[in-house]
């Protein structure tokens, strides 16, 4: 299945019945798939007049208590920033897919990871985080969609799948758990779905004019973030046990990096790979652990080095962190990464 279509089908299997989107390359297949499938299962596909409207429709659906998603690519995510902030501020769950392309501006349409900062640091204005997942295969995209929905509901935090044009466009075999039974969603006592004259009215709101009150609400949310950081961080470690050198890469780039790590091992270089699967929360502890025996780190990204600071912070700058990246839609090759690894290891072979 094509990555974009797999994301869509996985969402449907996870109980997502509402989709709001706006056409943009390279994620269009996802919306097209939803347009075909959702009406057949009693769901709703709606093409909004703008990215801005789409994210607000998502907020409306999320507030009403249903499982819903929107998808876009980089420039479109910038437009959604406002809505993402409001969702975070009103504790409304929902899933946002970003099939990244090159930027800034209109940029290009080739694969990119240049929205790392946007996703992990500033998906909108204000004091907040969203859950960010970075799959590296079509199968993992599928697995993370239902996981992201669950966590988003449980913690009442919006979630994002940070994919890229390569993952969205590529086809790989996938297994999607399909069940004819309806997915049981957690009861949402807070949802604005009509009080039916049986309870006080619910309010979904991000406005708190009293400074003390807003501080209290934000602090409570950050307590939740702490629980998320402790329990929901995901990362893959590959050949790190005896590694002198560590490559850190996420998403599609991690596959290229893994190929290079294998080649470097064949040359006798003791190197391993740490692949953050959640970008927020970031796998700080895991990086700290491997830093004990590692001499230095190499971040490989499809951007100008956006994750480097997070790696440095995770290991308290205790080891040098080098960077190799391609940007603008250029995908690094295993050979290029291998060359960097050889350089990192001082040419020892």
């Amino acid at each position: 299945m094509k990555g974009n279509e797999a994301l869509a089908e996985a969402a449907i299997q996870a109980g997502c019945t509402r989709f709001f989107g706006y056409p943009i390359t390279p994620q269009t297949e996802l919306a097209a798939y939803m347009a075909k499938r959702l009406p057949k299962i009693g769901g709703v596909f709606l093409q909004a007049e703008s990215e801005v409207s789409a994210i607000n429709m998502l907020q409306g659906a999320g507030a009403a208590g249903v499982r819903a998603m929107t998808s876009s690519s980089s420039p479109g995510i910038s437009l959604k920033a406002e809505g993402i902030s409001y969702m975070a501020g009103a504790d409304v769950p929902g899933l946002i897919i970003n099939v990244q392309r090159g930027g800034p501006g209109l940029g290009g349409i080739q694969p990119s990871q240049a929205d790392y900062w946007q996703a992990t640091k500033a998906p909108g204005h204000g004091d907040f985080h969203i859950l960010v997942f970075a799959p590296n295969s079509v199968q993992e995209m599928v697995d993370l969609v239902s996981h992201a929905f669950d966590l988003s509901d449980n913690y009442r935090v919006p979630a994002m799948i940070l994919a890229d044009g390569l993952l969205g466009q590529m086809m790989e075999p996938v297994e999607i758990k399909s069940s004819d039974e309806k997915v049981e969603l957690p009861k949402k006592q807070w949802a604005t779905c009509g009080h039916n004259n049986e309870r006080e009215h619910n309010i979904v709101n991000s406005l708190f004019l009293q400074a003390n009150e807003l501080e209290r609400v934000v602090r409570e949310r950050f307590e939740r973030y702490k629980v998320i950081e402790e329990n929901e961080t995901m990362c893959e470690k590959y050949m790190t046990d005896d590694a002198d050198y560590i490559v850190v890469a996420f998403g599609a780039t991690a596959r290229v990096a893994k190929a290079a790590v294998k080649d470097a091992r064949a040359k006798g270089i003791k190197i391993g790979l740490v692949r953050p699967i959640t970008l927020w929360p970031f796998p700080k502890e895991e990086l700290k652990e491997v830093a004990v025996n590692a001499k230095s780190f190499l971040c490989v990204e499809m951007n100008m080095g956006q994750m480097v600071e997070d790696v440095k912070l995770a290991i308290d700058c205790s080891r040098p962190v080098e960077f190799f990246g391609r940007t603008g839609g250029v995908i690094p090759t295993p050979a290029e990464v291998l060359e960097q690894i050889v350089k990192l290891s001082g040419g020892e072979q």
């Binding site: 390569l166 590529m170 790989e172 599609a252 596959r255 290229v256 893994k258 190929a259 294998k262 995908i331 090759t333 295993p334 050979a335």
Partner: peptide, 9 residues
């Protein structure tokens, strides 16, 4: 497992 789906060589 296929490491890099992008074939360069």
């Amino acid at each position: 497992d296929i490491c890099s789906p992008l074939v360069t060589n």
